[in-house]
Design a protein around this nucleic acid. Structure first.
Lengths: 135, 135, 135, 135
DNA sequence: GTGGTCTAGACCACA
DNA sequence: GTGGTCTAGACCACG
């Protein structure tokens, strides 16, 4: 099963779907051109309202992650963010700052934080590779 | 002026205050025992309702960042997060994953991402040092 | 009409709602699974703001009396308090002590107090039975 | 030490004092005519502001528990509630109902509740007797 | 349609 | 003077 939702998590269901599709796309589990499950079938599988899935797909389309072909379904778009480098770095910088502030709160020093970051990066690369091998 | 709010960013004002106080506390701009601005005075300065500031302070207290004494005022708590290492790393890992997924979406490769992270870390250290020097 | 509020009693409206729902649930007037009135309709009926009812429902949920499902409504939870016996007795003991101290102030002797307590208990049982009969 | 305050309990300090004096008076620890500690000395002992103690004493006087003799101090009044029996029973009934509702929530049956009540009553009597013996 | 959040005004309790 | 509570209006997210 590609996706899972956790009703108790507080995070809205449709955003859980959005995030998971984005993560799957970033990690190579879903690749450009791949079809997404149909709205009705996914809704049934996840036991959620069709509107919820539709909302997630709409959001994904507006973020440029997928594209919908009327009557055919939804497909993963090829990446290629049209964002400028500055904007990209600003966005990433903000996410990083949040991490750093939180780390200082936890009294985690820079060396450990960097180590943890490298671990995460590696773990992500491994997941991605695993998704690409069966190709 | 210690704090600033941006009414146009979708982020709720009270959360902006929370984040800024946390950042100031993490970076050493605010140190344990330091008093925070009174609710009324901060509200006036930021042009927001008293309750908005009060809500921020309540949240900060529940997160263990500050201490509030009715009739006296609010003060930065002395650190010592009682969180377990596992929980800490889990929380940080999630923040990092969000950054990494986003970076992959932007097609930023690992080397550049790591470089950016280091830059941020350094920028933070500089700010912190600046706050500690006048000591 | 299920609920009533008294604006002149110093007790906050939202707490009056909480207490009445708890009493109704304890006495069997409301049973597990029963739906509570919608926030809007109850607010209209009681002539209070929607948020006042919402606050009452939030409190009831946090006390484990009801369950609320966004977009669906609020429902009485099936009992089974997960509280330990010790904690229970401590809480009840405190309530009783308040009664006893008050009674001594009124110079009501133990026998009369006990008699009064029995009467109340019986009155409660009668109400409960009345709610269960139409079943 | 006759009184103690708990700053973390949430209950206002002055009410803690009120309650403890009332309990001491009800249980016989303090008897009609007994002098209460002076405001200044009690404030110092409890490490609270004199205003806080003064407020507690004012409240106690307005409730008819003590009387203050200007320049002499405060003394416990002889009980003798001027309340009518009906009013008394109504007040006690409400306190009892709160206990009963809570008990039903905890799924404590009537027999056990009555047993618990008797225990409390006895515990109270014992405390009272202990206070009267040294007489 | 549902419940939830954010901001706000007025009032209160406390030191 | 301080912070805290209750009520409320407007808006939002969700199904």
């Amino acid at each position: 099963m590609l996706l899972e939702v956790n009703f108790k998590s507080g995070l809205p269901v449709y955003l859980q779907i959005v995030e998971q599709v984005k993560a799957a796309s970033a990690s190579g589990k879903l690749r450009p051109g791949d079809p997404l499950p149909g709205i009705r079938s996914l809704a049934e599988e996840l036991r959620v309202n069709r509107n919820t899935v539709a909302k997630a797909y709409t959001e994904l389309e507006s973020e440029g992650v997928i594209e919908t072909a009327a009557g055919k379904g939804c497909f993963v778009k090829d990446g290629a963010t049209p964002l400028k480098k500055d904007a990209r770095n600003k966005a990433l910088g903000e996410l990083m700052d949040a991490t750093i502030v939180q780390a200082h709160h936890y009294q985690v020093d820079d060396a450990e934080l960097l180590k943890l970051f490298r671990q995460r990066l590696e773990a992500f690369a491994v997941r991605k590779e695993a998704n690409e091998k069966p190709e």
